[in-house]
């Protein structure tokens, strides 16, 4: 369960002035939700997800994940949180070209303080590459892969430590339609079969439609939330999140 309350975030620009990006965001996200966050560029959606993912700790307000307040975590705890509970997928893939795909997928194991045998990590990475359909590319460097294949490697890396949540920042932004559809199918399967919470910033209407819930952010505030009414009824009934795919979702804005 993720609980965001009164979240404010400002950036200081070079001329010393302050630009407020988030203005009192309140948001609850249930475990296993497939949430898309839409909004214009600069509306604060990426900032919101960076904060929830523990990448950004400079904010006002409260963010709790499974009862733990992120801003109270030490660097070590926040790093462990990112390592064990969150998987990041970026629009630009952010893979290391000097490593093979397999080594890229194994990257989180290097920083896993729980330890574990290198052979186990290798087996896990190979298994993940197989799951995302590019096992045959394991030994190749990412630079030899297409955009869709690179994103699959990035997803496999995000899944390495069996995270409970994946944060994806425009994961199909650099992909063609066909590759984007395939990645979307992968996300849908992860959400439905592995019950991984998916938080996706997107301009892609197909992803927004596929999500079980869609939140629109404008001027640093949540303007629309397709799942607000459902959540209210959940709280009344005590049931855990989850709505049918597409139900209550509003039409996402066109890709920029």
């Amino acid at each position: 369960m993720i609980r965001v309350r009164g979240l404010h975030k400002s950036y200081r620009s070079g001329d010393g002035s302050s630009q407020r990006v988030l203005r009192g965001v309140d948001l609850d996200i249930a475990r296993g939700e497939f949430l898309s966050v839409v909004g214009r560029s600069g509306s604060g959606k990426t900032t919101l997800l960076n904060i929830i993912g523990g990448l950004d700790s400079d904010y006002e307000g409260a963010v709790e994940v499974e009862g733990k307040r992120l801003h109270e975590m030490t660097d070590l705890e926040a790093s462990a949180y990112r390592n064990n509970h969150v998987g990041f997928v970026f629009q630009s893939f952010h893979l290391f070209d000097y490593m093979s795909c397999l080594e890229n997928v194994m990257l989180p194991s290097l920083f896993d303080r729980k330890g574990g045998a290198a052979a186990d990590a290798r087996a896990r990475a190979l298994d993940l590459l197989d799951q995302v359909g590019i096992a045959e590319k394991a030994s190749q460097p990412p630079m030899n892969l297409s955009g869709g294949q690179k994103q699959r490697v990035a997803i496999a890396r995000a899944l390495f430590n069996r995270p409970s949540m994946m944060i994806c920042d425009e994961p199909t932004g650099n992909l063609d339609r066909r590759s984007g559809d395939a990645i979307l199918e992968l996300f849908r399967a992860l959400n439905q079969e592995d019950r991984i919470t998916l938080l996706i910033v997107t301009h892609d209407p197909l992803i927004a439609d596929a999500a079980t819930r869609c939140v629109r952010i404008e001027d640093g505030q949540v303007r629309e939330d397709s799942g607000a009414s459902v959540r209210a009824s959940d709280e009344d009934g005590g049931a855990d999140g989850g709505v049918d795919a597409g139900e209550g979702a509003f039409e996402a804005e066109e890709r920029a």
């Binding site: 993912g53 990448l55 660097d75 070590l76 790093s79 462990a80 990112r82 390592n83 064990n84 990041f88 952010h94 290391f96 990257l107 989180p108 290097l110 920083f111 896993d112 890396r157 390495f160 430590n161």
Partner: peptide
């Protein structure tokens, strides 16, 4: 810097 950012995202501490 992006590589360093990725390492931080997948769990590297500042000390790492």
């Amino acid at each position: 810097q992006r590589e360093i950012g990725i390492m931080r995202a997948v769990g590297a501490t500042r000390a790492n």
